[in-house]
Amino acid sequence: MYTIELIGRQEMAAHKRLNRDELIATALAVIDTDGLDAVTIRQVAQQHNVTPMALYRHFPDKDGLLDAVAESLLAAVELPAPDDRPWYEQLEDVLSAILTALVPHPNAAVLLLTRIFESEPGLDLAERVLAQLDAGGMDVEQSADSSCHVLVSLITLVIGKPGQSSDSTEEQEAAARVRWAQLTSLSPHRYPHVVAAAAPLSASVSAELYYRRGVELIVTGLRGLQSVSQPVAG
């Protein structure tokens, strides 16, 4: 009986010491290092020297913990204030702000696909993107559809970002030379454009250029869609 009471007191003391934000940060660190499948209530509890039961007071289950991680990522997005610039320029800044928050956490970015509307930060973000698309002349249905594609495109950019290889610089340069040799050995009659682009296709792309070009392509596509949807005068 005494042992049970002692354990209960220890659990209560541990609960008082636990900080929800710290638990979320621990879960995110595990995801960053080992991936989504690696994070569990038990593992996070062990890193804080408590039993899993102590975490269940903060999160109902693993999904609840992942919900909290997703919300923390969304809350980290620093949205720029609206201004008088064209809608597409403002949208570029919004998308860049999202990337800034997600780029350090590629393993966790996929959580947002199903959780964007589950928290206030996510709703604020969705509202801002939809407002910019509305300013671009899209109707409600077009804006909703386009915003979903934008989110998927951003997450794909983050997941596929350059520089994630564990190889050394020398190994990456050697791999680039091998790829260049392979591409330049192709038939220029059958693959003229691939052969002509062998050098840039083989070269490493800077992260800054990669993300900037990705955002530009997304917004350019939206502008093209918006112009096509506009009625022709006359």
Rank of each mutant, 00 (worst) to 15 (best):
M1C: 08
T3H: 15
T3R: 15
G8W: 06
G8F: 07
R9P: 05
E11F: 01
R17H: 00
N19S: 15
D21E: 09
D21K: 13
L23N: 05
I24Y: 03
A25W: 01
T26I: 01
T26M: 00
A27G: 13
A29I: 01
I31Y: 01
D32T: 01
D37A: 15
T40P: 02
I41G: 11
Q43M: 13
Q43S: 14
V44P: 05
A45R: 04
T51S: 12
P52H: 00
P60N: 06
L65G: 08
A70K: 11
S72H: 09
L74T: 02
E78L: 14
E78S: 14
P82F: 10
R85T: 00
P86G: 00
P86S: 01
P86K: 01
W87G: 04
L91Q: 04
E92I: 01
L95M: 08
S96M: 09
A101E: 07
A101D: 13
L102N: 05
P104W: 06
P104L: 00
P106M: 02
A109S: 08
L111G: 12
L111A: 10
L112C: 04
L113I: 03
T114G: 13
I116V: 11
F117Y: 10
E118V: 03
S119I: 00
P121Q: 03
G122M: 02
L123G: 05
L125E: 08
E127F: 07
V129H: 00
L130K: 10
Q132Y: 11
D134I: 05
G136A: 04
M138G: 00
D139Y: 01
S146M: 08
S147D: 07
S147L: 03
H149K: 08
V150E: 08
V152W: 04
I155G: 06
L157W: 09
G160C: 01
S165M: 08
E170K: 02
A176N: 13
R177A: 15
R177L: 14
V178D: 14
W180R: 15
Q182T: 11
L183K: 12
P188S: 14
H189Y: 06
R190D: 09
R190N: 11
H193N: 09
V194Q: 11
A196W: 02
A203G: 04
E208P: 02
L209R: 15
L209D: 11
R212I: 00
R213M: 07
G214P: 10
E216R: 11
L217E: 13
I218W: 00
T220E: 12
G221L: 13
L222R: 01
R223W: 10
R223D: 09
S227N: 13
V228I: 15
S229C: 07
G234S: 06
